[in-house]
Structures are given as structure tokens and as C-alpha cells.
Design a binder for these strands. Sequence first.
RNA 1: GGCCUCGUGGCGGAGUGGUUACGCAGAGGACUGCAAAUCCUUGCACCCGAGUUCGAUUCUCGGCGAGGCCUCCA
Length: 472
Amino acid sequence: MADTPVLQLYNTLTRSKAPFAPIDPDNVRMYVCGPTVYDFAHIGNARPVIVFDVLYRLLRHLYGADHVTYARNITDVDDKINARALRDFGAEISDGRLSLNEAIGRVTEKTANQFHADVAALGCLPPTHEPRATDFVRPRRDGKADMITLIERLISRGHAYVAEGEVLFDTASMEDYGQLSKRNLEEQQAGARIAVDAHKKNPGDFVLWKLSSPEEPGWESPWGRGRPGWHIECSAMSAAYLGETFDIHGGGLDLIFPHHENEIAQSRCAHGTKVMANVWMHNGFVQVEGRKMSKSEGNFVTIHELLHEERFGGRAWPGEVLRLAMLMTHYREPIDFSVKRLEEAERLLAKWPAGGDAEKGRIDETVLAPLLDDLNTVAAVQALHALSGRAAPDDFAASAALLGIAPKKASLSGALEAEIAAAVRTRLDLLKARNFAEADKIRDDLLAKGIQLKDGKDPATGERVTTWEAKR
RNA sequence: GGCCUCGUGGCGGAGUGGUUACGCAGAGGACUGCAAAUCCUUGCACCCGAGUUCGAUUCUCGGCGAGGCCUCCA
């Protein structure tokens, strides 16, 4: 009897790895900050989605598929969205053909759909819950947590105050503010470039609610018609689906401060709890050609472009390749997204057996073990590669599925397959006749169409056996 | 100015106080009519300096270098 496998996870809160112990093994709860839907998701946005998808799959394997709850929000209220709506639908709005809210709806709907298509192509399972911020602004009929109620509670508990039409979180009211990012507010202020707002008690205080002008989107609230600050949505939605305290909270490195720090402050102060989530996990950045990806650098690559256009390396890339390339670096390390790296991932994938049934197979220990060590996908990929030569196809598929990889045979039309089979037979006949020139012409023609022939020997008879593989 | 990461062969990337993975690419070979595929073999590294130690790539300190956060950001 093997030992019960123990999952070790690196916790940003303690800056160390520790064994993972769920609050309730029957319901392991994880929250990951999702996209703000104003534009195509870029390859950097894909990293947390893929990384935490692997963790989700691993948790489902360890605790059972029905015992893991994964919530990932969609942020559909944000000033960037408003700006995008005005940019894209400005004419319609000024004509009166479209209200701003309708235009915002179009932007968020289109972007959210695109996001779903992108991450599905990357082999990510949908989360258990995918709440939208706009559904959690005002108190809900179902009694789930909402932003306005949270803000009211923060005010009544003395953790927030109203000033100049804004509701602000009072960072000084929380004794241990700054634990996640290891920031000490007093020290921080010396050289920081925090804009000094006169209405803030402390420079680190942040907005929970701000008033909207008539043309800005807004919701009625005790403080007037307005909209929520950036952080409060995650406090509300995580509480709504995972409770006041839950197991794992994930996101990108850059969210540690201020976003996650402030989420913690809001949630803990509103609920009077010692912790918001036990384990905080953060993935590293994606760089492109060795530099931070940013619009000003001009190296901004969207998932959509990689999948469907020929912008990166002059060709489109299958989602599986992008996913594997992403998992070939440990999630906490920076990753340099390059053509070379994608090519290597594609080569690996091409060598792996396709068509196994993951449902029927068993996950191999050598693939599972490294994942238990803080999601060491690099070692898991290597173990999978070692496995590819010796495992039964179903077992290989089951092990690959843990990483969300399902090697597929290139699907060709039946007619094309028949055509290839006929060409192969003709070639074999020509070879028997030692007509190499004609035989090679068939091979070259097929290769030009992307069909690579591979000759082998039947081990028993020594006869030539030809198989083929579709390149790309 | 404050805080946080990180520096391993051509590339990717584990790991360890002593014997230095692995993958890709490269080289050589086997096989083949020739290729491809496959198999075998193989070269190549632990940023610099000091310290601790019998011994450091691994521990400590310092330096150099890279990146990130402190303002919207995965």
C-alpha cells in the first residue's frame, strides 16, 4: 500500500513550501483571479489559467472530481472597459443608437466569449463557477455575498470611511496589513510614488466605492450612484462561492500588491477572520523575446493571434503546443515565450502516442510525483516523455490528461486517408520492382502535402512496413 | 528610496555538501537503395569574490547581472 500522496505547495504568505491540508477534503476550494474583459487575452493572461488548470486537475485527482470547487471570476466592470466601449461604439452612442451600458455589454460579451474560446483551445477545463462582477455589486436575492453589503460591513466595523464621495478602506485600522507583500506602510511611504490624495487618511488607503457621473455606469448604493473599486469584487465573489475562508487563492505575481493584499484586508476585516485563504499561489511573468510583454514594446501577443494568425514565427500554433510550451517551465519562474520553445514543444508532442483512452488508463506514479512537489510540471513533462516509449497508450493518455494534454492524431478526411493508403501501396509495389525513382517521387509528393512516410520492418517477416504521419 | 524573485552546458530545465539529471539541438554509428523514423554512443555548464568545511554548483556574506512590485497589469 503506497503512502497517501502529499501535495506540497509554495505559499507566498510564508514564502515557503508546505504540505497542503484542505479545510474540508470533501470540498477543496480554490479561487483564481480571472480576466478583465476589455480586450483579447494575451499569452501572459494564459499562464495562470493553464497553471491553475493543472492544479485543478491534480486536486480533482487527489480528492475526487466532485470534491473540488474552482471559482474564477470575470471582471466586467472597469474603467478600461468603459473606455473601450466609447472607442469602439462612440458613433453609435452619440447617435443615440446605443446606450453606453449597451455598448459596454457588447464589449464584455464579445471579449468574454473570445476568452472562453481561447482557453478551451488551450485545453483548460471550465471552472466550477465563473461569476461576473456586475452580478455581485448589489445585494442578491439568493443571499450570496455582494460588494455593497461588504462595504457597509467594513464601514460599520470601523475599517472604511467616506470622503469626497468615495468610500475608502482605512489601512491603518488593520493591525497586520501588508503580510502578503511584506510591506510595511510607514517604511513604504518614504520614497514611494503614491499620489497624495488629500481626502485619504493614509496614502495606502484604497477605493471601495466611487461615485459615477451620469454618463458612467453605476449602481445605486447608500453612498449614491457609483461603481466598485478594483479589489472588492474578488472579496465578494470568493465569499459567495467559497466562503469566508478557503484553501487556495491564485493569480499572477503582479497581483500580490496591491490587489491580493487589499482583497485580504477587505475580506478579513469584513468577516472578522484571521485568514482569507490559507495558501496564496502566484505564477511568474511571461516574457516575449526576453523582454516583458507590453504594448509599448510592441511584443504583445494575444492567444488568438497565436492560435489563428501567422504573427508569431510566421505560422499559427495548436493550443496543445502552446500549453505544453507553457508547462515546460516551472510556474513560479519567468518564462520566455519564443518560437524555439514552441518548436521544441511541438516536436515532443509529435513523438507522443496518440489515441489512448485516458478514462481507461492509470496515471503513472512518475508523472504524478513531481506534480505533488509544488506543481513541478517540468519534471512531469519529462517523466511523460520517458513514459511515451514504454507505457500502454491508455496509461499514457491518463498521465498526459493530468497535465491537460491529449495528444491527437491529425485528423484527415477519410478520402485523403484512402488516397494516401493507395499511394503507399503503389510505392511498395514500385519498390519491389526496384523502381526507386518513381517510388521516391511518390514519397516526395506526399511530403510536399505534409505527409511524412516512415518505413519500418515487420519484425517477423522482415518485410517493409510503411506508416505515415501528418506534419502540422 | 523600500520590498520581492532569480542567475546551471548552444537552448530549455531539474537537482545535490562529495559520484553533476533529463529533454531538444549538435556530432558519430547502426539500420536503409537513399531518406525519414527508430536504436546505440558522445562532446558541452553550475555569474564573480571571500568565508564556513576534509570537500561547495549546493550553506553564509559581499559584489556583479537580470527581472518584478511599490501606478493599470496575469
